[in-house]
Design a protein around this nucleic acid. Structure first.
Lengths: 215, 215
DNA sequence: TAGATTGTTAATCGATTAACAATC
DNA sequence: TAGATTGTTAATCGATTAACAATC
């Protein structure tokens, strides 16, 4: 039984389905059809059915989808029913903001340690975690069942640290450094390139001003 | 002369080209062929030539592309040759981190004001800017030539604030709130949904563990 | 049973890649 | 001029949408 490869386009849409289904659930809505979801989410009903069917038949003809059940299933697919151990490398402004932002924990992403190379930060508490020196990383990752490392360090250091993390057996890197990391293909990298995102916005603003939209 | 619509797929790649060309420039490299760039960036040379040709013939047969020139041209296309006025709504951890992160200014994105509804934060200085009450927003946007608003507020407030900003004439919204904003199509929205990004990473980690990659 | 809506196949659309003539 | 490499057209591939038979 061949497990068919699911495209990243589909994966990228799953968290959005998850979010909307969560909202419907919170509103006490029990069932939803692909057409109703289509109206709310502004995507085609066809795409919704295709996307979901990559993972199995969650619906029922003549009825639609059970909101609670579909929500739970997508959560399972995304892995938010499990707990993930995270460490964060770089205790600067962004690193601290991410640690302090409590909402990731709700989805099972647990910050377990914070590291920085700056000795002046060592021992400083960030939301009940003391900032540790980089030298502790190896033993900490091994001892605490760490899946994911969050990189909030300058790009000049990111590649070197990523290499170490791979060596320590990390499974995924959430990369905020503005550089493309070179890691073995079994290690997953998810980039958050904020300045790229901002430039894209700037482009779209300037284009729309030039009035390309009225055709 | 019809201005052809350029796909978002292409736009999304421009900041990455820009980054790599900046690096080549800093290394003092004068010219680059699509093939060389292809090797460095791990995309096809064909895609590079197609992408660039959406905006004009920046290269020269038999020579390739002049790094300095192409860098400048892409910068111009992205609008980083111009200055953009930004305000940030929400002076929490993430908002403060973004203001304090100096690198956006290098690209012409200038934080001009910080707003928060919490009176306890009003007057607090964040990188030389005092946090202002929401009531000041309208006059500030109008008086200071503000293009872009950065939303780092909870999703419950985001939609309402976005509506106001649109009314005040904002051109673009950089949205960190976990909600899809409903704005007129002439207002550009760029979403940064961090928890979606993290869930995608979680999915890819769990898939790769199930060994779908050896085919 | 009749009506509704899925799951899935087929058609379309768009994006990527390949190929090569144009030209520096 | 010969060699290199673009700009651009054509071919391929993949993703989205439409259609409809299956089935609740």
């Amino acid at each position: 039984m061949e497990e068919k490869e699911i495209s990243q386009a589909v994966i990228s849409r799953l968290p959005r389905y998850f979010r909307y289904l969560g909202e419907l659930k919170d509103q006490g809505i029990e069932r939803v059809s692909s057409q109703e979801l289509s109206d709310i989410m502004k995507v085609t009903a066809s795409q919704i059915r295709q996307d979901l069917n990559n993972f199995g038949g969650f619906g029922q003809q003549g009825y639609g989808y059970n909101v609670e059940h579909l929500y739970r299933e997508i959560g399972r697919i995304l892995g938010v029913d499990q707990s993930h151990g995270l460490i964060i490398i770089g205790a600067g402004n962004l690193g601290q903001a991410l640690v302090n932002y409590g909402n990731f924990e709700r989805r099972g992403f647990i910050f377990k340690g914070v590291f920085d190379k700056d000795p002046r930060l060592h021992g400083k508490k960030i939301r009940d975690k003391e900032v540790q020196p980089m030298e502790n990383m190896k033993s900490f990752v091994e001892a605490n069942n760490i899946d994911i490392a969050v990189l909030t360090i300058p790009k000049t250091e990111a590649e070197k640290v990523a290499e170490q993390l791979v060596e320590y057996g990390i499974k995924g890197i959430w990369n905020f450094a503005h550089v493309d990391l070179n890691v073995p293909e079994e290690v997953q990298v998810e980039n958050v390139h904020l300045s790229d995102s901002l430039m894209k916005l700037a482009y779209n603003i300037s284009r729309s001003r030039k009035g390309g939209d009225s055709g």
